[in-house]
Simulated assay, not measured.
Amino acid sequence: MRLLMLNPNTSQPVTDLIAAAARAAAAPGTEILPLTAPRGVPYIATRAEAVIGGAVALEMLASAHATADAAVIAAFGDPALGGARELFPIPVVGLAEAGMLTACMLGARFAIVTFAQALEPWYRECVEWHGLERRCAGVRALGGAFRDIGAVGEEKEALLVELAGRAVEQDRADVVVLAGAPLAGLASRVAERIPVPVVDCVAAAVKQAEALVALRPRKAARGTYRRPDAKDSTGLDPALADWIAHRPPR
């Protein structure tokens, strides 16, 4: 199968981390197709940036979905996930949803651990959007600045392990979810230093996408996730405008 890994921010080093973690998790025969947003912000940390990244993710899907069997929106807050599932006929997986649902299979309550306090409000709202408030023991985020978004996992590794330990001891988390695409691949390095299961969201998303492709679900023809009726638009990315209007690709 062919799996799109869509990074809705503009940081190529983060895309490289995502792709490496995805390929490490993928089954034989799964081809990972990484894409980086052509415009936007270097990393998504706020509600407004999530809206920007989500719009770009829809444009990327409009251009590339026909070449793939499934797609992953590789940002933890799952920007535009609902819209992507509504519009496109292939399974679309969100990093946050995949990580949290995987954690729910490993324990009663999970903690989200991430690298920047600016992410915390958006991540809490993401938990609520997915209806998982009762399963979430808390969201813990590091304070302070970091030098390089593409290397924040290495730079903050010891502090993230310490923070995860506090989530286990103080929040009574059964599972730790390492949140944020820049932390892709970190779980395998720190798993033995954290006393509960640790979820790598990129790996979880790849395995969820593979499972969905194997299950061969049809695209909804009724209900709230059916493809919307054709509609003209003004000023949108041409591929997305054509898809919304039900026009054939140019």
Rank of each mutant, 00 (worst) to 15 (best):
V175P: 10
R172L: 14
A191G: 06
F115Q: 03
L159N: 05
E162F: 00
C126S: 13
A191Q: 14
R109Y: 06
L159T: 00
C136I: 01
V161L: 11
R134V: 01
V139H: 02
R109I: 00
V202T: 15
G107T: 02
S188V: 09
Q117N: 03
A158H: 10
G107M: 10
R147S: 15
V176Q: 06
A164D: 04
V176L: 08
H130I: 01
A191D: 07
E155W: 05
A108G: 08
L186S: 12
C126A: 13
L159E: 15
A205L: 11
L142R: 09
V113K: 05
V177R: 01
V175Q: 08
D171A: 15
C201A: 15
V139A: 04
V190K: 03
D200P: 08
A173K: 12
F115M: 08
V199N: 07
L183V: 03
E128I: 02
A167E: 10
A179G: 15
P195M: 10
G144P: 05
G107A: 06
G180F: 08
A204G: 10
C201D: 08
L160I: 09
V176H: 07
I194P: 05
A118L: 13
Y123T: 04
R140V: 03
E133K: 03
E133D: 11
E157G: 04
D200Y: 11
L159Q: 14
R189K: 15
E133Y: 00
V196C: 12
Y123C: 02
V175F: 11
Q117F: 01
G180N: 09
R135S: 07
E157N: 06
V152Y: 05
G153M: 07
G185N: 09
A141N: 03
V176K: 06
C136D: 11
E162R: 13
V161C: 06
E192R: 15
W122C: 07
I194N: 04
E154T: 14
D148R: 11
V152T: 01
Q170P: 00
V198M: 12
E169P: 00
P195C: 13
E157C: 14
D148Y: 05
T114W: 08
P195H: 12
E128V: 05
L183M: 07
L142A: 06
A164Q: 10
M105T: 13
V176W: 12
I194G: 13
E125W: 07
R147N: 14
C136L: 06
A179F: 07
T114M: 06
Y123E: 04
I112Q: 01
R134Q: 10
R172N: 13
L106Q: 04
V175A: 14
R124C: 09
E133P: 00
A158F: 01
T114I: 02
D200E: 09
K156E: 13
D148E: 15
V139Y: 02
R193H: 11
V139D: 02
P197N: 02
